[in-house]
Design a protein around this nucleic acid. Structure first.
Lengths: 185, 185
DNA sequence: AGGTTCATGTAACCCGTTACATGATTTC
DNA sequence: GAAATCATGTAACGGGTTACATGAACCT
């Protein structure tokens, strides 16, 4: 029994908001900023089937007068649990390097699942990891800079600036959550 | 005969700089900022074999007194040609959404292959595409903002800010190339 | 003698891509 | 009655991940 893929978690997260059909999910992946995910039926329907086989979602056919019948999916309690576990696992250096998208997806549904307190914790962990990673990137490429072609140097610089932008975003987001907390207190 | 994968192009680009062995390439993927690529032998050696089968690289075994013999790869003229074609193809909206990494990889080797003039053209095209994409993202999520949980909204915002950072980077890079051009004139 | 680094591979597995297929319902 | 939209699937293919395997040279 294998791990759930990122697509699987994206589907789970959307189903946590409300029950949806495969077609609903596809539409989200074509029409909203979640279009980084593929809206191809060849990806989504098998992914839903796997989620069901693993007991993370349950589905039943919804009969509707007039309209075509469709299969509605909703997460099971095991699905919710696995989703939360995935969201709260530690942030590793490697997540920063290869799985930034996954980190953002984990965060995107946090308020709805584990609440703003945990969202804030996540952001702090993310900011901490970024703050330690960025300087290490700089020192790693600093010495090389001399004998590198301009475009190569700039490409690396773009990566670093991407991380710096992410750190600025995380810090602002932290401030937003903290203001909200104080406001409630 | 299928298309070359991103990993394939990364390998080709590095081989364009100088002949290297599979092991050399692996080390680059473990030790440099190119670590977004997998350094697993199960990815690299098959990828090299495919490149060779497609006639994009040639290899020969290098015998070395004392040291273990190793297989050195170098691009063929067909390989160079395909690489340049890949680098110069049009920048699509979809590249921005799903393949930013690939765009950066295309740019990273440009000075060495097709020269600074083309690099500048690439940057201008990229900046243009970004400048048209970012507002469309903003207007797409603007209306939704009301009925979205905070973490979801922030996650989207992070995506947009990532694109904005990329645009700032591109504009600075354009300025660098243009200064260099004037300096030479 | 034993551990590390150099060096190259293979095999199973999984998932995403692409393309194809089907059929109901709504709209013109 | 034809086209578009709703809705759900399957099948071939390819490439990346993970894990395993091997063996030479070097260092201690």
């Amino acid at each position: 029994m294998n791990e759930t893929s990122i697509l699987g978690y994206a589907l789970l997260g959307l189903l946590l908001q409300k029950p949806r059909s495969g077609y609903d999910l596809r539409k989200i992946f074509t029409a909203t900023p979640m279009r980084t995910f593929s809206d191809s039926p060849g990806a989504i329907y098998p992914a839903l089937r796997r989620l069901e086989e693993r007991g993370l979602v349950r589905s039943h056919v919804q009969e509707r007068s007039g309209l075509r019948r469709r299969r509605l999916f909703r997460p099971t309690s095991a699905g919710v649990a696995e989703f939360k576990t995935w969201q709260t696992k530690a942030i590793l250096r490697d997540d920063l390097i290869r799985r930034t998208d996954e980190l953002m997806l984990r965060f995107a549904f946090m308020d709805e699942t584990i609440g703003p307190k945990k969202s804030l914790e996540f952001l702090k962990a993310l900011a901490g990891e970024l703050a330690s990673y960025i300087p290490s990137l700089r020192t790693c490429l600093g010495p090389r800079e001399g004998h590198m072609p301009l475009s190569g140097r700039l490409a690396l610089e773009s990566g670093i600036q991407g991380y710096e932008a992410l750190l600025r975003w995380a810090r602002k987001a932290i401030a937003v959550y903290e203001r909200k907390e104080k406001g409630r207190a």
